[in-house]
Design a protein around this nucleic acid. Structure first.
Length: 276
DNA sequence: TTTCCTTGACCGTGATC
DNA sequence: GATCACGGTCAAGGAAA
């Protein structure tokens, strides 16, 4: 694989000093060991408890994540890739029912530019066996049969959209028939609400996902700052043409998450590789 | 009664002609 | 420019709590 791609896949490990890498591996091994111990401790409490069962699934996912992170840190290691994953430049303002008696042209006028073209939103994609457990409360607002897909796609929005104006949404689509089945989850827009459901014990720190800014020449840059060990630092990507690079930040969650198989959606353009 | 989900309709976008 | 296919969102109606 091209060295540039490798660098994008492992922006940290490629440049990480050997000593730091060894320390990271050691810490991950320790984390995996502690998780194993915690799982054993929990299963001894009440194995019949439904929540314990759910926690068990989460533990499996956490352990899988540790293993994956360790494989990335090994020389030549790389994270799992899903090149066909979606999430790029999804519409955020299309559709919707117009007011009775309101003409289409009038509606478009009131919507302004947003109603005419797809809006590049911050979004990121993950694969998980528990798409509904991510620490936030969601309300389902739609379901759609997707062309060429065996399963329907469900649409969720943050329950605090009304009272706090939180614009976070997510789409859930079953990926396979495995046991447990895997789901592709596309998150759009970070949460602006302050109502993390701590009871679920898993959360996602969207605050450090990505920031976009318009440069002087009109192009856009995407600054990614994360506390996540594998992607710590500052990854900056510039957009050569309008919407060539979408505002996608597909990356690992900086905080413990049930979503362990994150997708890097990448696009080749003129020999350069861009993360969607 | 309230909350949530299901489902059909509506509309924007991109592709094709 | 017209038409079509597809996907995202809305909101009415019904089910569940």
């Amino acid at each position: 694989m091209d060295s540039k791609v490798n660098e994008m896949l492992n922006p940290v490990t490629e440049k990480m000093p050997t000593l730091n890498r060894l320390m990271a591996i050691e810490e991950l091994n320790r984390g995996r060991e502690l998780t194993t111990q915690l799982r054993a401790l929990l299963s001894a409490v009440n194995p019949a408890n439904k929540q314990v069962e759910t926690a068990g699934v989460l533990f499996e996912e956490v352990l899988k994540s540790f293993s994956q992170a360790l494989s990335v840190l090994k020389p030549g290691g790389k994270p799992d890739m899903e090149p066909g994953a979606t999430g790029a430049c999804l519409p955020a303002s299309s559709g919707g029912r117009k007011e009775p008696g309101v003409k289409r042209s009038q509606l478009e006028q009131t919507r302004g530019d947003q109603g005419h073209r797809r809006r590049c939103t911050i979004s990121w994609t993950t694969i998980t066996s528990m798409p509904l457990v991510d620490g936030y409360q969601w309300r389902k607002y739609g379901q759609k049969k997707i062309y060429g897909s065996k399963y329907q796609r469900s649409y969720y929005k943050c329950v605090h959209r009304k009272n706090q104006g939180c614009q976070a949404t997510k789409q859930v689509q079953q990926k396979d028939d495995g046991n447990p089945p895997k789901f592709i989850v596309i998150y759009q827009m970070p949460h602006t609400c302050n109502n993390l459901d701590v009871s679920s014990k898993v959360g996602m720190d969207y605050s450090s996902i990505a920031k976009t800014s318009v440069l002087d020449d009109g192009s856009k840059s995407l600054d990614i700052q994360t506390q996540q060990p594998l992607l710590s630092g500052n990854l900056k990507m510039e957009e050569p043409e309008k919407c060539l690079l979408t505002d996608i930040a597909s990356m690992h969650s900086p905080v413990m998450s049930n979503d362990m198989n994150w997708i890097m959606d990448m696009t080749w353009l003129d020999g350069e590789v861009y993360i969607k």
